[in-house]
Amino acid sequence: MNSTQNTGLQLVSQIQLWARELGFSQIGVASVDLSSAEAGLSAWLAQGFHGEMAYMASHGLKRARPAELVPGTVSVITARMNYLPRDTPADWQAVEFSRLTRPDEAIVSVYARGRDYHKVLRARLQKLSERIAAHVGPLGFRVFTDSAPVLEAELASRSGQGWRGKHTLVLSRDAGSMFFLGEIYLDLALPATEPTSEHCGSCSACIDICPTQAILAPQRLDARRCISYLTIEHAGPIPEEMRPLLANRIYGCDDCQLACPWNKFAQRSALPDFDERAGLSGAKLITLLGWTEEEFLRYTEGSPIRRIGVERWRRNIAVAMGNAIRGGLADAHMQQALEASASNDTPLVREHASWALAQGVAPPTSP
């Protein structure tokens, strides 16, 4: 090993120490050559699996070409941050699945119950970058957290954060998949960290559990069928045939992760930022539908939920209420709340509220 390589490895080790002080769980380094991923990205986009997420296609193959996205980039630091709340119980997967047995309860994805991860990771990645710059001198860098056309999971898997699970998420033997990823694009050459091997084997738990069969095959996801996409990214009416499959999930879906055996090793966050906020875990659907726009903005301040806006929020809740009614839940207060939305809300919400009310009407019998 020459002195340059040794210096690079020492710097990576120092960066890993600084990162842990900032709450990151693991740091890796990837090269900028992602050419082998371009064909898969192009095919996925060509099949329309990205749905209405136009940003996925708008930058073309720049997603797989870091040096084109940020000219001068020669290496990428990848960062992992665990997000399970600090008080998460040992049997958390069973606890989360049990929410599906309470149809009047709203299910918000675990990652969204605390502070907006974009803000948390971006601020800490910026601090890490500045610390590196203070150590090495003039440095060109740009930080990303699910905020630009970056092949995040590809970079993470190439840098040893884990392997691509069959659900397309990155999986770690030490931390499952309950973590956020972020990147720092650098004009500083650093030695790449070693990738890890895959450990899914013949397991198909994530594919089998998916409520909408959005995982078409290992590592092949049709986002248009994914509940996370439908409740968060999709702006218009939720397709009627998909509505019953949402059950009482109103923001995201964790099922593929809850079913994954590796998530018994999921780690609790070291930060209070991802602790559950009051009102976003175990809340009743009727309570959340009753939020005014002002209350929605107040209760979701600093939360990733705010990005969908109050209209999609109510749309999703109306669908969940319809599913509760379809399942036999007779609740006069829920009925009244839906009737009010069906009369007085936006056209999008009115349509979903009317659909929900119709779920309690028995179909006519044949003569």
Rank of each mutant, 00 (worst) to 15 (best):
T4C: 01
Q5H: 05
N6V: 00
L17T: 01
W18M: 00
Q26C: 05
V32E: 01
D33Y: 10
G40L: 07
A46Y: 06
H50P: 02
M53Q: 06
A54T: 14
H59A: 15
K62D: 14
Y83V: 12
L84H: 07
D87L: 08
T88P: 12
R99F: 06
T101G: 12
D104C: 10
A112V: 03
K119D: 15
S129M: 03
A134C: 04
V143D: 03
D146I: 13
S147T: 13
G162V: 09
R164Y: 11
K166G: 08
H167N: 15
H167S: 10
H167R: 09
S172Q: 06
M178W: 13
E183P: 09
A189P: 02
T193R: 01
S202G: 07
L216K: 11
A217N: 06
Q219S: 11
L221R: 09
E233R: 08
H234A: 10
A235K: 11
G236K: 14
M242I: 11
C253K: 02
D254C: 04
P261N: 12
P261W: 08
F265L: 10
F265C: 12
R268H: 05
L271W: 07
D273A: 14
E276D: 14
E276N: 14
R277C: 07
G279T: 03
L280D: 02
I286G: 04
W291M: 14
T292K: 03
T292W: 01
E294P: 01
G302D: 14
G302S: 13
G309V: 03
G327Y: 01
Q335T: 15
E339I: 03
S343A: 15
D345G: 02
T346S: 15
V349I: 09
S354N: 07
G360W: 02
P364H: 09
P364R: 12
P364T: 11
